Amino acid sequence: MTDKRFIATPSRTKEILQKYHFTFKKSLGQNFLVDANILVNVMKKAGIDKKCGAIEIGPGIGALTEQLAIHADQVVAFEIDQRLLPILKDTLQDYENVHIIHEDILKADIQSVMGDHFHPGQPVHVVANLPYYITTPILMKLLQQHLPITSLTVMMQKEVADRMAAEPNSKSYGSLSIAVQYYTTAKVLANVPKTVFMPQPNVDSSILQLTMRETSPVMVNDETYFFQFVQACFAQRRKTLRNNLISFFKQRMPKEKVEEVLQQSGIDGGRRGESLHMEEFASLANTFWKKEQQIV
């Protein structure tokens, strides 16, 4: 499927970089994809077609943006690096359905941008090759804002993708797994070797697909409290729930009270966080939340 016209080839990428005397900024985690076959495969797996809109984060020189423009109705791409704007204007000049927004995605009003560029009720997918250093904050912002997004198909560091999709009783399972899976169903679609990037990163990547849930899989009394509580349960992985929670509540609740609430919950305080399913975390967090309301 690779075509010499595509941006995502080593020769075309080098040609563009040389034309603009572009140098990579390590601080922005810039690694450009140079394999169009992988990108075409991402389009298929993400379900991108002319009925849907697409949001990209960090388009670089436009390799993924180009494929999105070919397959989607409208494409909005957020780029923080001003040096890339003239390059994108050049490489994507044939595509009238692409809108480049020069803004930090973490500061952007995404809801407003979606209203400006997509039709009401149109399925919108996020597809991106995310910078490694800021993957988690970007995804959590997108998830916690409850945006009208259908799915996110994103390339990221393999280790982080494994953590987001991890099941209980595995080494990768932790508070990040719970946070992501509270909002989505998570699935690693494929692993991507470092050799298909320029420059080559130090680690391999994975394509992770997050499909938004219509409703949360568990009922929690307070979302913020729930996520803080789960983080506390994993604060020191080798410690038991009891010890992590005694440490977490030390300013608010005596250890005898922590023990009492654990017994009320029916969950063994001698277990470790990695052994609990999301339902158990929700039940435990709700029990402690109610107890703290009584104390106040």
Rank of each mutant, 00 (worst) to 15 (best):
V188K: 11
R163F: 03
A128L: 10
N202L: 11
E223I: 07
P137V: 08
S170D: 02
Y225L: 03
P120D: 13
Q145V: 04
N129F: 12
K194N: 07
Q228K: 14
Y133L: 08
N191R: 12
N129H: 08
P131V: 09
Q144F: 05
V203K: 07
A179V: 01
D162N: 12
H125Y: 07
P199V: 06
A190C: 06
E223C: 02
I110M: 10
S216T: 15
M198V: 14
A165T: 02
T135Q: 04
V127G: 08
M156S: 07
L142I: 12
H119N: 11
N191F: 09
V126Y: 07
S205Y: 05
I207M: 05
Y183E: 02
T211M: 04
I207H: 01
M219P: 00
I207K: 00
V127H: 07
Q157G: 10
A108C: 03
P137L: 10
G115I: 01
N221C: 08
I110H: 08
K141A: 11
Q111E: 15
V160L: 08
S216F: 14
L176D: 05
Q200S: 14
L142M: 15
H119Y: 13
Y225C: 04
L143Q: 10
M164Y: 08
L147H: 12
T195H: 11
T184P: 02
K158R: 15
S206C: 04
E214I: 01
D204Y: 03
Q157E: 13
D204G: 11
Y182L: 05
